[in-house]
Design a protein around this nucleic acid. Sequence first.
DNA 1: CCGCTTTGTTCGGAAGCGGCACAAAGAGAG
DNA 2: CTCTCTTTGTGCCGCTTCCGAACAAAGCGG
Lengths: 410, 410
Amino acid sequence: MTPTRTTRLERGRGALGPALELVHTGRAPTRAVLTAELGVTRATAGAVAAELEALGLITVDSRPTAAAGSQGRPSHRLSVNPDGPVVLAAQVHADGFRAALVGLGGRIVATAPGSLTVEADPAQVLAEVVGVGARLLRETGRRCLGAGLSVPSSVAEPEGTALNPLHLPWPAGVPVREIFTRCLAEARIPGPSGDAPLTGHAANDINLVALAEHRHGAGRGARDLLCVATGHRGVGGALVLDGRLHTGSSGLALEVGHLTVDPDGRPCHCGGRGCLDVETDPLAFLDAAGREPGPETNMLRRALELLRTEYATDPAVRDAAHLLIDRLGLGLAGLVNILDPDRIILGGLHSALLEVNGERLHAVMAERSLWGRSGTVPVLACALEHSSLVGAAELAWQPVLDDPMAVLGG
Amino acid sequence: MTPTRTTRLERGRGALGPALELVHTGRAPTRAVLTAELGVTRATAGAVAAELEALGLITVDSRPTAAAGSQGRPSHRLSVNPDGPVVLAAQVHADGFRAALVGLGGRIVATAPGSLTVEADPAQVLAEVVGVGARLLRETGRRCLGAGLSVPSSVAEPEGTALNPLHLPWPAGVPVREIFTRCLAEARIPGPSGDAPLTGHAANDINLVALAEHRHGAGRGARDLLCVATGHRGVGGALVLDGRLHTGSSGLALEVGHLTVDPDGRPCHCGGRGCLDVETDPLAFLDAAGREPGPETNMLRRALELLRTEYATDPAVRDAAHLLIDRLGLGLAGLVNILDPDRIILGGLHSALLEVNGERLHAVMAERSLWGRSGTVPVLACALEHSSLVGAAELAWQPVLDDPMAVLGG
DNA sequence: CCGCTTTGTTCGGAAGCGGCACAAAGAGAG
DNA sequence: CTCTCTTTGTGCCGCTTCCGAACAAAGCGG
């Protein structure tokens, strides 16, 4: 209940969007807080809340909320409507395919896996995942307001093509957004406004992890959030600025994997040497610890298990972890010097490295950054399950958060 | 007259601010264009233009504008009022101190140097520069709406302290913004609203160069603009996102000097090796060309002259230039991978390197970036004189551009 | 039971903007 | 020169949105 930074109201889109976003991200538990955060009068906040309730997006609970002991008339509790509309979120990655219905607040209402194997081609995979989503919609009877897709690849804008699908036998340049949208149309999933078909949104999985963590996870409240994570191979990054994903002018920003973190390191396919990408991923860890890497699509799990079980006992594992922590610290310090975020979130192997020895990571960052700045940036581990699925849903919710009336018809 | 991207109107601040910004940056020469760019009706655009004219900020010239040959009723010409209010811009750097009055449109109305030498302490220097500005204001009788200061140092936010003043005998951490504001108060410079004193704004010079180039120079029309430039020593960077400076959460973003561009390079004070900072600055160039560096505060001029006069004739100079171009290209490719700007602007020695052999720079960037992305980013040289002074003025104009009525009283 | 505090609502009224009709100013055709 | 066509600028009305102020509601403490 500390209305610090009043989100200045931009009347143009109405106050509805900002208000919904506050409830959606859990920053407006009551109308009183909403009033303060929006910087409007109680009258306006009340009207806005009533409107959102009428749209079925939020619920107002007027029962005495087990009063917090404060004086005055108790507030009514605002919360996301658990029975309200949902969006369709789809996830494509090497471990399998999955569809989900996600409500406001990042709550997963229903989810189910696809059954195809990774060998299937893009159109088949997306058609199946959309089909699973359509089935979930029929089963739950929910209204669907949008659709978002998470892909393990950079997505070029404005074309919406996947440039480097990881661990999938897809050619480069698959127009995933277009295919996704076509599948949605063919599955006859009714959009919010009558018979107009849904338009699909698609983005890189790490971008979506960052978005999800920013709205509902370890990044809540941060203004500029940097997210760095590993998959099985390589390192990805994402940046949320002022609540929006920063994808750059062609969607390819935050390719952080090719910062040099070891001038004497191994060559990288980018033409450089000692890149973050090849020096801090699970393969690099297994290699440094003297273990056989094993199959590529199992490296992250193997690395995580090795780190968690043998860090305390096996000196080779500990040394390998420290080596990676030092390199990661160098890379993060470099990113802090360029981006100056106010929080950093790590995922995959990186978050495990943070957990086993965060002090060392902080020390390296503090030493290798200018003005000791990066020593003061909070570094946290990812906090959400299914974060890229939730992030795909955020992508789909965005138009609703921008202007609820425009989407829901008024 | 191609209203491509309609700057969506945000009613909250009124249409006044966006409209003024369009005229200010020369993107709204007529009311018709203003109508299209704002996405409002002609009636609204007309009312807005009338309001801005009444405020004395713009002028409407209804004379037949030497008609452009098109059909229909000729437009009235909208332009910035050359006799309108100004802001006070001040510049502090090793070559001397300077104050200026800058009108809308980035036009320097009056300017004069200070007389103190670099040995003077911060408070003396700022007091003198502000005094010069006050004198200019008295002489011209202009109304002053704000004040901005350019410093050759990173400026920490929110404190407004200069962390690493270059070529000035200032200690680290001088609270320049506070001192500047105090000097403005002591000089009794009347603010826009009655007797309330002016608040000073301050920022790093390269940030201000980027801002000025974005509004009035080679960066006009870019959405995400990256600026990289050298002074006498070292390399600085700045980023404009969506028309705003991105200074990061503590004002220290875009410290691009410590990207590794030569794994075998010389050691850098940051603890790394082969940093952009020490491998592409004027000293590195003079060194590579086998010349004596000479005094530190003359290196940029010496390097520029050497490059321009002897690149075509002296193989040693040409080889040195190519070496620096290759390293710069590597650094820029790294930045493109992270930031994905839609335009890059180079200043200082870097812009001269671009001019002598831009093809080579583009080739290196294309080769060393992912998806060949950075091969397609336009790279341009700085186009403005006194750009950091104009940028300091932009900083001061910003509140007016955000909400003219709030500043000018309504 | 009566103040006190905080929250929510109701009711004008002001401001900003869209829509429409109309006026203005040139180009081109005859 | 005049008439029509095209584009630009303006006056007026009404809608939407929000603020301000008064009032009502709901708990707490005496």
